[in-house]
Structure formats: structure tokens, C-alpha cells
Design a protein around this nucleic acid. Structure first.
Lengths: 195, 195
DNA sequence: GAAGAAAATGAACACCGTCTAATTCTTAAA
DNA sequence: TTTAAGAATTAGACGGTGTTCATTTTCTTC
């Protein structure tokens, strides 16, 4: 068959990403399949490849969509809040991860082949989230130390990520930690106080 | 064929795990294949399944082996050190991860199906590593606060993990962080000081 | 030697990502 | 209106995967 008048190329691209995200959220990265996405949207596997190029490109697009949702959730949570903004941001971090387990986990399960580099629009999405955190860390620091916000924010992002990761992958359960969010908040507080 | 006089069942099990670990270290989790392991040790795919039971069981055994090596590397590094032991342990954490990239990453890439639970001998290996950290954290705390060592150690483990993970997966490079180990050490120092 | 147990096999199955020749539809020119 | 060009879509082929299990081979024991 040829063109289908009901979908432009762009709409089809969006359909694939949305349905891919849906499927990823349901079955997780390990069981994700491009063929299944094709089946669900009523196109053949070949079309997925024509539109997306490769499975890696599809995964990047899906993870990019997850990052968009994540940043939106972060900013929604912060909107209008004037106190404890950093703590709110961290809670939102945990919230998103646990409400979107599979999609969030896939951000880290999927990796491009050794030498390849992610496209600019993907890295832009990562830095967009980081920038939100940098802003809040800067606001939490005494004015004289605001210059240190960027490196500190990177480090605190890693700190929170580690706690969130251990919370979701079962490590904390195994080790008897029952309140991972509180632990993460405590570590961030330690760091901010030290500055 | 039947028995091969040159390998007991136990030796064969060990061969599979060792060769599996070798292959995993070379190609990484995404490209790991049980069939390839069989080919390499000169047995058929069926034998792998007879001996290991399933791919999941094989992965658990391989990851268990990685954990053994990791703990050994940790304890080797600490042996005889009397100063900065906690910092040494963290450096060893980073060292092992970067010298065994693929094997270390596979510890977190691989996940058992939703409901299943890891076998006791696997969780024992995880807690064995944790215990080393708990010990060192306890030693770094003032005697009056040693009771808090366990929860704090869990949290610091997550902190260091997050930094190590971001260092290896490229997030830190993307964000401009050039010394992830130093950042991790700084966060741990902040936490210890706060106690 | 024969019999039984243990070990090892490899073909069969249902998936997967990837590629490409062939097909179908749309559009614009003649 | 017919037709040629071009874009979109398909389906099948290919080589790979994990998994199962009836069958074959080997070893041990009597």
C-alpha cells in the first residue's frame, strides 16, 4: 500500500513514540518489542523502521518523551511552591520514578552502542531537567555560595538518583531501608548545610 | 553423549559461570548470549539449561561471581590501611566498576521477573559487601553515634552508587563533571561531618 | 556383557531486530 | 483523462535469541 491520507509522516512518528511509550510502561524494557508496537498501531514492522530508522532511534525517542513528562511533572510540582522547593523537587523525582517505574528504569537500562553519541535533542532534554535542579539548589544556598550551585547540583542529582534507584530495584528493601526518600532528603540536607 | 570423565557436574557449573562472566565482560549485558557461552566451552545449548536451569539462573550466578570479585577487591584495598579507610573503600568501589564496566553494569541491568525473589546465596553476597561498608562507616563515626552506622551506610552506598553510575553511563560527562570520585567523596564527607 | 542411570545433544518452536524487493497509493504532468 | 514518477507501506527472508524435550550417547554397576 502507499500513503494513508489519515496520517502525515509527523503524526505517524508521534503515534509510534506514544504507543511505544505505552507499551514500554506496561511490559518494561526487557520485554519491549518494536514488532509489538507495529501490531498495536496497525502498521507493519517495516513502517516502524522507515519512520524511526532503527530500534535505538525508537528507544531514544521514547526515552526522550519520558524525559519530557518528567520535567513537566517536576515543574508542575514546583509551580506556586515557595517553601521547601528543593525538598519538593526531590519528592517529585521519587514520585515520577515510582509512578512510571518501567519508563523511568528504561532511561538507564537502554544504552547506545559504545562509540555512538546521543543526538542533541536528547541531551538537551537531560540538561533541561538538570537546569531545574541547578536553579533550586542555587536558591537553597546562601547568596555568597551560589557559584557552587552547578557542580553541587550535579552531585546531588547523582545522590538522589542512587537512592531512587536502590528504592526501585529492591536493594533498599533487602538492606532494611524503609524510607528511601527520607534518606535522600537527609543526604541533600547534609550537603546544603555543609555549604 | 553421556558423562565426560573430565568434568564433574560441579566443575561444569563453575566453567559455565566463569566463561559466562568472561563473555559478559567482553560484550556487555545487551549482547550476552547463553548459546555463545555454550559454544565457547564446547558444550551444546541444552547442557547449559540442564546445568543452570534457566537464563535467569545463569545471570544470577554470573552476577554473584561479580559480587564475589567486588568484595574481594574491596577487602584487598582495605587490608593493612589504617587511615582514610572509608575514602579508600569508595575509591575501590569506583575502581572496580570502571575496570569491570560490563560486569558491574550487568548487576543493575539484569532484573528478575516482577514477582520472583533472588535466592538467599545471592542476597547474602549483596549484604556481604554492605557489611564491609557498614563497618567502615561505623569506624568513621564518633563512638557515640555508631548506632547510626547501618542506616547511614545504606544511604552512603546509594550516594556512591549514584555517582559511580552517572560516571559510567555518561551523564556526568554530559553535565561537565570531570571528577565524579571527588564529588562522591565530598558528599560522604558532608554526611559524616553532619554526624 | 547387559541393563540402567546419568549426561549431553540438537532439532523444533516462537519470538526478536534488520533489511529489501515488491506492491500500492498519491500526485503532478502531459 | 491518461500516465509516469514518486512516496508510503508491506511482507517475507535472514540470522539471531531463549526454551523445551525426545532422543542418543556415554558411563557405571551388577
Amino acid at each position: 500500500m502507499g500513503r494513508r491520507s489519515d496520517h502525515t509522516r509527523e503524526e505517524l512518528h508521534a503515534m509510534i513514540v506514544r504507543e511505544g511509550h505505552r507499551q514500554l510502561s506496561e511490559v518494561g524494557f526487557a520485554r519491549f518489542s518494536a514488532r509489538e508496537v507495529a501490531k498495536r498501531i496497525g502498521y507493519s514492522i517495516g513502517t516502524i523502521y522507515n519512520v524511526m530508522g532503527s530500534l535505538d532511534a525508537l528507544m531514544l525517542a521514547i526515552n526522550g518523551h519520558t524525559l519530557d513528562l518528567w520535567r513537566a511533572a517536576l515543574e508542575d510540582r514546583l509551580a506556586g511552591q515557595s517553601e521547601n522547593r528543593l525538598a519538593q523537587a526531590i519528592a517529585a523525582y521519587f514520585d515520577f520514578a515510582s509512578h512510571h517505574r518501567h519508563a523511568w528504569t528504561a532511561l538507564y537500562d537502554f544504552r547506545l552502542p559504545e562509540n555512538e553519541v546521543p543526538p542533541p535533542d536528547y541531551t538537551a532534554r537531560v540538561t533541561a531537567i538538570t537546569d531545574v535542579v541547578v536553579r533550586e539548589v542555587a536558591a537553597a544556598l546562601p547568596p555568597a555560595r551560589r557559584a557552587e550551585a552547578q557542580p553541587l547540583a550535579r552531585s546531588l542529582l547523582a545522590t538522589v538518583h542512587g537512592h531512587c534507584f536502590f528504592a526501585l530495584n529492591g536493594t533498599f528493601r533487602l538492606l532494611g531501608e524503609t524510607d528511601p526518600l527520607a534518606a535522600a532528603l537527609a543526604r541533600v540536607e547534609d550537603a546544603i548545610s555543609a555549604h
